[in-house]
Design a binder for these strands. Structure first.
Lengths: 137, 137
DNA sequence: CTACATGCAAATTTTTTGCATTACA
DNA sequence: TGTAATGCAAAAAATTTGCATGTAG
């Protein structure tokens, strides 16, 4: 939820134009933390009534390709988007479905599994599941 | 790719009927290791020309619910299905996209992350990425 | 027999595409 | 001004649903 510093410049440096729609999309993803396409569209439509769903889809592609945002895929759920940030893993509540980030450097894990499996492993995605504090009550 | 022992019985024990279609679907997923809906349909259509895509979808739901098969979700790819087996993680080649299993017990990892994050974590999904042996050449 | 499963067709939902128009750089 | 981005509408993909018929148990 923190402010995105110089998003205009980041976009331009990566070769994308800083359009109002694109800025708002990034801002909304940043505010939401984790969001799916239809919620994103719904939320932004209020602020930019002319906004097209096609524009959102096109932006998701370009922003993912430039690694400004990232896709999160969870079993049985629609694709979720988040701002690309430093190494973290996801925590999903098995009851309410809320998604939280856990700061975790996966590189040691990558090395360990690379060694024991004798495969070339350079990256990994880790998603954890459990009952969140709210739902535990 | 190993033979499924007593699939008929397993299905019935879980309250599903052992129809020809359902048995073939399981057999095909088992043979393939990892497969997506449309390949599954294509392959089985040769053997059961009357087979309907709707039947596949309906079976995927019932078989997943009974935990006989599992969904695998990978960024930017269609949902993949596999037989439910003991703890393992996935390895995806970043070049050719092939999916391999790595035997790995995630429970120690679950405990470790649960402790350091102070969250209740009971399960996790781990997917690893790298350049497979074939593509490295 | 009877409840569950299948197959078909139609309906939804999700995502992509082409093209004219707009607007950033 | 040139090129990328937007918005719209239409198309394509992916998934779900209702219902008549078939079949496992």
């Amino acid at each position: 939820m923190r402010k995105i510093e110089n998003l205009d410049n980041i976009l331009r440096q990566k070769g994308l134009r800083a359009t109002a729609q694109r800025l708002m999309i990034c801002d909304e993803i940043n505010k939401a933390g984790h969001i799916e396409i239809d919620n994103l569209y719904e939320n932004l439509k209020k602020q930019i009534p002319s906004l097209s769903l096609a524009t959102i889809y096109k932006n998701m592609h370009s922003l993912v390709k430039k690694e400004i945002i990232s896709e999160v895929n969870i079993k049985g759920r629609k694709t979720i988007y988040e701002m690309t940030t430093e190494s973290h893993i996801h925590y999903i509540c098995t009851e309410c479905g809320v998604i939280e980030d856990i700061a975790f450097d996966t590189m040691a894990l990558v090395d360990k599994i690379s060694e024991l499996s004798e495969k070339n492993i350079t990256d990994c995605k880790l998603t954890t599941f459990g009952l969140c504090t709210n739902c535990a009550n």
